[in-house]
């Protein structure tokens, strides 16, 4: 008897995770008969810590006199847009958890600590307390592994969550009342090229979508990155002095506007096609893979996205964009 119980557990575990052919068939039937999961929205929601700094929430230590209102109002509009939409979890990819050995996932139920931005410690020292949807995380992780991607769960309780995740997490949902799935940024672009990065991220997006739909959960997926990403290398005495804020160059502006035009006219495929040029010429933060992954997770949408805001932060271009997939259900089947 004592030998049968562990075997039984292993079998159940295997079936639940689709570890063999029989189980695969079984899970697919289950998925169809269960409530289908849903992506209610996809968002591009950048994470410059300046936005949290400028807002003065109680969790952040430094104190600001405002600043970057255009973008903060953009976040307000995004939150307003989703106010009455029900969802269970937020799936987020931030370029500031940088991994070279595959794609990693936060794998413990809760993380609580102080996040200090190593680049702007004067602006961002945030006390966070966030919950992880470990179940949904495992599903995405396992599917990615099956698809041949190198993946790893992060289960060290001392790990500090990156400031990109915290900033976007806060600006998107300041109440922190939804669990998250947090995906690291695999630096395949640095290793190989934008093309290779994009291939991997499109694959990761596909399995993310499958896992969400099979989970029966309603989910918001977020890529946390800026568009053009050339910073000023000096900071004014008052960081929030808006008289000093502008895009670093005209070329960066043109690229940002081109991307926004594609967002607003439902041309996701064109964005993917132009990703190598955009990423290289605009030194764009899409190098972290977030935007490619997001568009793939949204099944390369052809419906228009909503631009909630655009603004620059120490010279970088930032857009807050929502793809309201809930209003385009035919696209999600």
């Amino acid at each position: 008897m004592c030998q049968i119980a562990p075997l039984f557990e292993a079998w159940v575990y295997g079936r639940l995770n689709g570890r063999n052919a029989d189980a695969d068939i079984a899970t697919k039937h289950v998925a169809l008969s269960m409530t289908q999961g849903e992506i209610v929205a996809g968002c591009l929601a950048p994470h410059p810590p300046h936005l949290v700094y400028a807002e003065n929430p109680p969790q952040n230590e430094p104190v600001a006199e405002g600043g970057w209102e255009q973008l903060r109002w953009g976040y307000e509009r995004l939150r307003e847009s989703l106010k009455d939409v029900e969802y269970d979890a937020i799936v987020l990819l931030s370029p500031h958890w940088q991994t070279y050995v595959g794609t990693h996932f936060l794998g413990l139920p809760n993380f609580k600590s102080l996040s200090v931005d190593p680049v702007f410690p004067n602006l961002f020292r945030y006390h966070y307390d966030l919950n992880i949807d470990v179940d949904l995380t495992s599903k995405i992780h396992d599917k990615a592994a099956e698809a041949g991607l190198a993946v790893k769960m992060m289960e060290n309780p001392d790990f500090r969550v990156d400031y990109g995740t915290i900033t976007t997490g806060h600006m998107f949902n300041p109440a922190w009342d939804k669990p998250l799935v947090v995906i690291s940024s695999n630096r395949s672009r640095d290793y190989y090229s934008v093309e290779v990065m994009q291939e991997m991220m499109i694959e990761l997006g596909k399995v993310t979508r499958e896992a969400i739909l099979e989970s029966g959960k309603k989910v918001v997926v977020i890529a946390s990155n800026s568009l053009s990403h050339r910073h000023f290398t000096t900071e004014s005495a008052i960081p929030e002095d808006m008289s000093k804020e502008h895009i670093t160059s005209h070329a960066m502006h043109l690229w940002d506007m081109r991307m926004i035009d594609y967002f607003r006219t439902g041309q996701a495929q064109r964005i993917l096609n132009e990703m190598p040029e955009f990423t290289e010429q605009a030194i764009a933060e899409s190098d972290g893979g977030g935007l490619s992954w997001l568009l793939s997770t949204l099944d390369v949408p052809t419906y228009p996205a909503t631009l909630h805001g655009y603004g620059t932060i120490i010279g970088t271009g930032n857009a807050i964009v929502e793809w309201p997939e809930r209003d385009h259900k035919e696209a999600s089947q």
Partner: peptide, 30 residues
């Protein structure tokens, strides 16, 4: 492994204390 954007940064906390976990090799320990 400490990149900066606004010039160079120099650590000036006389006694910085924390627990470091590597972004990639977190499974090796803290």
């Amino acid at each position: 492994t400490w990149p900066s954007i606004i010039g160079h940064q120099i650590q000036a906390n006389p006694n910085p204390e924390w627990v470091m976990v590597d972004d990639d090799f977190h499974d090796l320990g803290s």
